[in-house]
Amino acid sequence: MYGDTSIQKPMKIAKSGSPEEAELERNFQAKIDADIKIEANDWMPEAYRKTLVRQMSQHAHSEIVGMQPEGTWVTRAPSLRRKVILLAKVQDEGGHGMYIYSGAETLGTSRETMLDDLRTGKAKYSSIFNYPALSWADMGTIGWLVDGAAITNQVALARCSYGPYSRAMVRICKEESFHQRQGYELLITLSKGTQEQKDMLQESVNRLWWPSLMMFGPCDDDSPHSAQSMKWKIKRKSNDTLRQEFVDASVGQAKFLGITLPDPDLKWNEKRGHYDFGEIDWAEFYDVIKGNGPCNRERVNNVIKAHEDGAWVRTAAEAYAEKHAAKEDAA
């Protein structure tokens, strides 16, 4: 059980608002400024802890819910090769969720609490997973764009100030690279196929391009917590900076596939040394976050169902463990 372990419990506790707390806070910020990582049993401001729990649990939930859009295609993969790849990828997403829950738990919130919050809708997850995967091409586009956007974010997060989060990200980034490459390879195959396959590829990218750009979150001007997160080095780059990196990287990759990106305003800006791109539909973004995306209810219901369907397994495992513990006590 969490909380009774000295590798996680912060031992130094100061009264809120006391001079002692102010000094601890100064020392904390000095460590951050010197790029020294914070570990679980180090003192940290309560707001830092809360921000991390919220961000890490949302991140973990995104991995768990992210298994669903691709999971629906496992049985419909066109070849055994594609099927084993997709299975491994979906399994990885589950694993990534577990790495991050494991890291988040070191902050003093139990995994059950985090998962309860997902099931009751109190906690959010990335809005991209509230869009359906409608065609086989989506399996490629999700790898290329959705995982590509995730990697852009996660490479920055691998340098975040909280040790357990940073280490989980290093591990995840290594594995995500496979996710993006298998997706792009799938799309290359489609791009060399029949007209129908090429159309399927273009249609998929048209649908998923904008939601992928939304994955980086609101514009910097509308992102109220960003400044504090940057100061704490939880965030190392701003939403708009990361979004720009992603756009710049994607244009050439789209060209190679012989497809267009669905943005008439997308063009190279010599002066900035970056691509300009059109305005994101923020009304849609906030609407999906509020729960009105095409799949919000289905995604959460599946999470709840999986939990309920697994109840008998947990009960059996608990009965087994109790019986064996009793036997050991008797021996």
């Binding site: 590798i7 031992m11 130094k12 577990m98």
Partner: peptide
């Protein structure tokens, strides 16, 4: 299942977290 999907290990130790005693950063 979780930590050796890519040949990361040839031996695993598990130990109950509350059996680990840590030094205090203070």
């Amino acid at each position: 299942d979780l930590y050796t999907r890519r040949q990361e290990g040839i031996s695993i130790w598990v130990v109950k977290s509350n059996h680990v005693h840590a030094s205090d950063p203070v």
